[in-house]
């Protein structure tokens, strides 16, 4: 974005296409030259995708993965933002809770899998819990830092108009911190999408993560494994693109640097 000459329209499509094609070519010829029987070529993967679509399992798996992310990530947004706002607001609460938070935060959500299974059994709820955990911390951390960087002038202005503490948090602190909170939410969604795949490999028997591990286990179908991986990548990209659209809303756009 910072380069002085803006690439022409055809160039901004042409070169990325060349790069992707080159990668596919390297992949294809590596498979051909090594004569591997295990790893699929791009063409095999394409047939794999078609096969998955024909059997209608792919759509069901995508739906299951998205549903888990929606629930776990959604709950993390709903709980994480109020908790984070309060921690950012109340220095006393923050002092009490922060050490515990800092110990829990670096624990990989994957390490929680056994615990999640004890709590919720093998099934949807364990996976959703893991996604919740994974997205909760980045949201809370973003809220706390967002609140602490709200200019004091804006707090004073809010107080001057006679707002109570809760009104001040809702009408001044939250909107002022929202651009930073959204960055945390976006990171959280990315993590949620990583974690759902991992969780589905262990805790449930549907979804894209399950598709990857099941394709390998039942007959070493690596064409399907790679096909599922590709789908995971594409959907992740779509999710990130979608959430970035929120940043274009006018009432938060002021907080992003590339805003006009």
């Amino acid at each position: 974005m910072s380069s002085i000459t803006k690439p022409r329209l055809w160039e901004s499509f042409f070169w990325p296409t060349i790069a992707a094609a080159l990668l596919l070519a390297i992949w294809h010829y590596s498979v051909v030259f090594t004569g591997t029987k295990v790893f699929p070529s791009p063409m095999n993967v394409k047939t794999g995708v078609v096969e998955l679509l024909d059997k209608h399992v792919l759509w069901a798996d995508i739906g299951d993965s998205l549903r888990r992310v929606a629930l776990g990530f959604g709950a993390a947004v709903l709980v994480g933002i109020p908790v984070g706002l309060w921690l950012g607001w109340s220095a006393a609460t923050y002092q009490v809770v922060n050490p515990t938070l800092q110990i829990l935060r670096p624990i990989s959500p994957i390490a929680w899998i056994p615990v999640a299974i004890i709590f919720f059994g093998v099934g949807d709820r364990a996976a959703i819990f893991l996604i919740f955990l994974a997205s909760f911390f980045p949201i809370v951390v973003a809220c706390v830092s967002g609140v602490s960087s709200v200019p004091p002038v804006l707090r004073s202005a809010g107080r001057n108009f006679g707002l109570s503490t809760l009104q001040l948090i809702w009408r001044v602190i939250f909107p002022a911190a929202l651009p930073q909170i959204l960055v945390g939410v976006r990171i959280a969604l990315g993590i949620a999408w990583l974690v759902v795949v991992a969780a589905e490999m262990i805790a449930v028997d549907s979804g894209l993560g399950y598709l990857v591990i099941d394709s390998r286990n039942s007959g070493k179908r690596y064409d399907l494994v790679v096909a599922a991986m590709l789908m995971i990548g594409i959907i992740g990209l779509v999710l990130d693109f979608s959430i970035r659209q929120v940043e274009r809303i006018k009432s938060v756009r002021w907080g992003f640097r590339d805003a006009s």
């Binding site: 804006l154 006679g162 002022a176």
Partner: peptide, 20 residues
């Protein structure tokens, strides 16, 4: 004893709410 909407302070800069 505290800020009051009957008396409003206008700040030097960045006093308006950018999200409104």
């Amino acid at each position: 004893s505290g800020p009051d909407p009957r008396r409003i302070l206008v700040f030097q800069e960045r006093g308006v709410f950018p999200w409104l």
